[in-house]
Design a protein around this nucleic acid. Sequence first.
RNA 1: GGGGAGAUUCCGGAGCGGCCAAACGGGCCAGACUGUAAAUCUGGUGGCUCAGCCUUCGGCGGUUCGAAUCCGCCUCUCCCCA
Length: 404
Amino acid sequence: MTPAPPDPRVAEALAVFRRGAVDLIEPSELEARLVASRDARRPLRVKFGMDPTSPDLHLGHAVQLLKLRAIQELGHRIVLIVGDATAMIGDPSGRNKLRPPLSRAAIDANLATYVEQAGRVLDMSSTEVRRNSEWFDRMRFEDVLKLLGRATVARMLERDTFEKRMAEGEPIGVHELLYPLMQGWDSVMVEADLELGGTDQLFNLLRGRDLQVQEGQAPQVCFTMPLVNGADGRKMSKSYGNAIGLTEPPFEMFQKLVRTVPDTALADWFTLLTQVPEGEVRALLAGDHRAAALRLAGEITGFFHGAQAAREAREEYERRARGAGPGDVEERPWPPEFAGQSMPLANLLAALGIVSSTSDARRRVQAKSIRLDGAVVEDALIPVSQARLPMVVATSKTKFVRIV
RNA sequence: GGGGAGAUUCCGGAGCGGCCAAACGGGCCAGACUGUAAAUCUGGUGGCUCAGCCUUCGGCGGUUCGAAUCCGCCUCUCCCCA
């Protein structure tokens, strides 16, 4: 047998897969698949699961989506699995509790949102979307037992999260043990060549390999991407409130990026969320980290909103940094129930929801953090009449609202 | 089925019947410093017509001049044994 001739395109493709990846099982298999794909002119089927219970996507998801996009550009096919059947269990990764089953309508709505948002990264028109209820709903009890027989309890319990929960005396639902098997079964049903997931997914991904082998298929290549952390150091997640959403307006996105990225994560974020070449990243990091953070924010904001919007976001950001006040700020109309009247500032701010209560307004004034058209407010009760509008209220150095 | 523990302000968690709007920590919000980052430091964090007043300590009653603190019932959690 002669070894396959070195193919620069295969090597290039391998590099695309590898950039930023944590686990790759097995590299040799991936290479073999790439070669076979090239020879047979058959795109690889790359499986990726989405959770139909929480459709709002953030940069953590973008890491995976960007990788999928890159793979798409290599000519391979993305198979998006909608876990509507598995959603009834809830992925036991993480310490979450049982989830209430979703209605079909809710899943449809979530899926639509997901597709819209993922479409900002992926080419959805060439993405194959499959719901796993397609096969799970057809299973008879006998089939379920057969699937269950494919794994041992000990094997399932190896899983870190289960181990931890056992140790801590936390309950583990018997059906939760089924989750990895279901995910694995999806791989069998769509004949996946590869599966991508977050590092927390490795266990589940590997179950796909086991099941495929047992079903006479070639085992899928599994590879994982890192989870990114939010500003608080915890895994980026909507529920932690530390997520940067894909749909956020340019300025918000830019600002959060600059503020969120710890210096230590700069390199990773460049690798995972931008196309900036490794060499250039190294050069950036050798210089001013602040400049690097701005560049990062510009790259990512530019990807989602276009170069023009990214440039404007950066200008706005720098304008505010100089303390020059905002360009565009949110506007709030004078409360209609007080039309034509004059009212104490504290009450006005509370009525507009700019502060949470008049007491809150008083405290902020005491702390000298409220400014009216640039001037620090000394008295929370100064009367403000509608006649002097518009005016700009600042509740901090960077937060402004224009009352009109 | 049996036995125990507990429900306090966003969270955790203190709280001799009066000095408790309630310690302390976390979170959050301002401010200082900075790179509008991280770290650190300071102040704030129920409401109001605000040097005072009002409403909070699972729910409903009761005792008392006075209760988050004592009593009764109710609801709900958690743990242990079987």
